[in-house]
Design a protein around this nucleic acid. Structure first.
Length: 272
DNA sequence: GTAGTATGCTAAG
DNA sequence: TTAGCCTACTACT
């Protein structure tokens, strides 16, 4: 699940559900217990997404940091009673019933790579090493383009580098390069500015659509041949990613390992 | 039951 | 460059 769109979606939803309220913070699984104690009962001011990182601002002045890694997931429940944790819940955020609601809102986090309560300086350090996040309002491609055009590394490698542009993962890498018609092994120095501007706009559009839909859909309904009100099936929502054949031209999709992950591309639509 | 897979990243060698 | 880590879900036996 988690590329940048997932993180921003969580930030939006959890701000809506939890911000401005005093929360019970705990760690049913135990590994977050000491940190949880420090903010238990504090008010959550806001939840902010940046790239693949989530930051929780607490009224204590401390900042919660969550990175989902490959496996991290949230489960949100609204229930009459406090629910039993399902699976290995590292962090639980829970409202108390009050005048405006008579139910518990419970947000359970399992499987994250990072989950901690830190001074604000830790967030500053993390943000300092991230490239621009196309989902965020006012973000600009300048820094990304400058880095890419100076690098001999392949664009498929550069796109996964969170210090160059953040929030892009393996699915959006494949899909954005497909839509812009760029071969993933093309060196950054061989990409021109107009192409990279188009790539930025594509990535930005895809990620923002992802936030809106709550899932990755990069294909147009026309290309897929699906009516407007029909749900796009799982495995059908991409042009090249995890496909055997290119949705556009039918050519065989190639798979190569780039930056530790399988990169999918169409040799016909993405010439070197 | 068991194996295999996954949209990530870091630290060790 | 590789191993390791974090967990849930699916497709098989």
């Amino acid at each position: 699940m988690p590329e940048g769109h997932t993180i921003h979606r969580y930030a939006r939803d959890q701000t809506q559900l939890l911000a401005g309220r005093a929360l019970r913070v705990s760690s049913p699984q135990g590994r977050f217990a000491d940190d949880a104690d420090r903010v238990d009962g504090a008010t959550l001011e806001s939840v902010m997404g940046y790239g693949k990182h989530l930051f929780y601002e607490w009224s204590t002045g401390e900042v919660g940091h969550v990175h989902l890694g490959l496996f991290g997931k949230y489960r949100v429940q609204e229930t009459d009673r406090s629910p039993e944790p399902i699976g290995a819940v590292r962090m639980r955020l829970q409202t108390e019933p009050d005048d405006s609601r008579d139910t518990y809102v419970t947000v359970d986090l399992s499987g994250p790579t990072a989950c901690s309560i830190d001074p604000p300086s830790v967030r500053a350090e993390i943000l300092a090493r991230l490239g621009p996040d196309p989902i965020r309002r006012g973000s600009k491609p300048d820094r990304m383009i400058a880095r890419v055009t100076r690098s001999s590394r392949g664009i498929g490698d550069l796109l996964m580098d969170q210090s160059i542009v953040c929030g892009v993962g393996n699915v959006y890498r494949a899909e954005a390069l497909f839509v812009t018609g760029i071969h993933p092994l093309r060196p950054g120095t061989d990409c021109d500015v107009a192409e990279l501007e188009a790539l930025w706009a594509t990535v930005q559009g895809m990620l923002r659509q992802g936030v809106k839909h709550g899932r990755i859909i990069t294909v147009s309904r026309e290309d897929l041949g699906v009516a407007p009100n029909v749900r796009i099936p799982r495995g059908e929502a991409t042009y090249a990613y995890k496909r055997d054949r290119c949705l556009r031209c039918g050519d065989e999709i190639r798979r190569i390992e780039i930056a530790n992950r399988t990169c999918y591309y169409c040799p016909t639509d993405q010439p070197f």
